[in-house]
């Protein structure tokens, strides 16, 4: 297991000319689970996409490093190759493109610097194992990416990809929404296990504490209005769940 850290410092960013992130700082170490909680519009999802480099999200200031690598200087795909994963709140349909083809491509050296001697990893086998671990019907793996999947199936599909790609750090944007109780438990358990299996560091964005009963966080951040306004232990999640965010505005 390696150790490292995802370090966010003074991050400011805008979307469509409007500043959404107004100075976010936090550090996730390998093997840790951090939760980011906050009301709608607090900037949680924006943080997730800014970290991954979504087009249209412009960084104004601050730094993001992964094991010392300047992520903000890299295009999206190289951030992923550097070890960052984003489990999306709304996973996007890609018609005609299979999960197997896309993950095989993600695990293959990019065109140009390919090494013909590299034996392709058993992506299909790993997909099946990961699907079984969280109770996702293997037949759904045959579908084009996210096409005709329910909300909950998409979230489990994201979790399967996390298990196959084995990133250093995962940002999970409301991975709990759309999941029923059993699926939530399975997904939470899988992510928790990844923190010990290969030292995955997790930044889990969520509205509710429900996920955090399974995926128990080491650190909880409360975010409102584009800033982290409180940081504490897992007990903070319980407080927020009972009292809401009013005290932090």
């Amino acid at each position: 297991m390696t150790t490292g850290e995802l370090c966010i410092e003074g991050l400011r960013a805008e979307v469509a000319g409007r500043e959404i992130l107004r100075g976010v700082s936090l550090t996730v170490r390998s093997g840790e689970v951090h939760a980011v909680m906050g009301p709608n519009g607090s900037g949680k999802s924006t943080l997730a996409h800014v970290l991954m480099g979504r087009p249209g999200y412009r960084v104004l200031d601050g730094t993001v490093t992964l094991d010392g690598i300047d992520l903000l200087a890299l295009p999206t795909w190289q951030r992923a190759r550097a070890g960052l994963f984003l489990g999306m709140q709304h996973p996007i349909e890609v018609p005609g493109v299979s999960l197997l083809a896309s993950l095989s491509a993600a695990r293959t050296p990019p065109s140009g610097d390919g090494d013909d001697e590299v034996v392709p990893p058993d992506v299909a086998g790993q997909l099946a194992v990961e699907a079984d671990r969280i109770g996702l019907d293997r037949r759904l793996l045959e579908r084009p990416l996210n096409v005709d999947l329910s909300g909950g199936e998409r979230k489990r599909n994201e979790t399967v990809q996390l298990g196959v790609l084995r990133p250093r750090f995962a940002v999970l944007d409301e991975i709990d929404s759309g999941l029923d109780v059993d699926a939530l438990a399975a997904v939470g358990r899988r992510v928790r296990e990844a923190t010990t299996e290969w030292g995955l560091g997790v930044l889990a964005v969520t509205h509710f504490a429900r996920l955090l009963e399974v995926l128990v966080p080491d650190v909880v951040h409360v975010m409102t209005d584009g800033k982290v306004v409180a940081t504490g232990g897992r007990e903070l999640a319980g407080l927020v769940d009972q009292a809401g965010y009013a005290a932090y505005r």
């Binding site: 991954m52 979504r54 087009p55 295009p75 999206t76 795909w77 992923a80 190759r81 994963f85 984003l86 999306m88 996973p91 996007i92 890609v94 493109v97 896309s102 993950l103 491509a105 993600a106 695990r107 990019p110 065109s111 990416l145 990809q161 790609l165």
Partner: peptide
């Protein structure tokens, strides 16, 4: 964006 976020060039 979705595919690139998986590490696909």
């Amino acid at each position: 964006y979705y595919l690139e976020s998986r590490g696909i060039d």
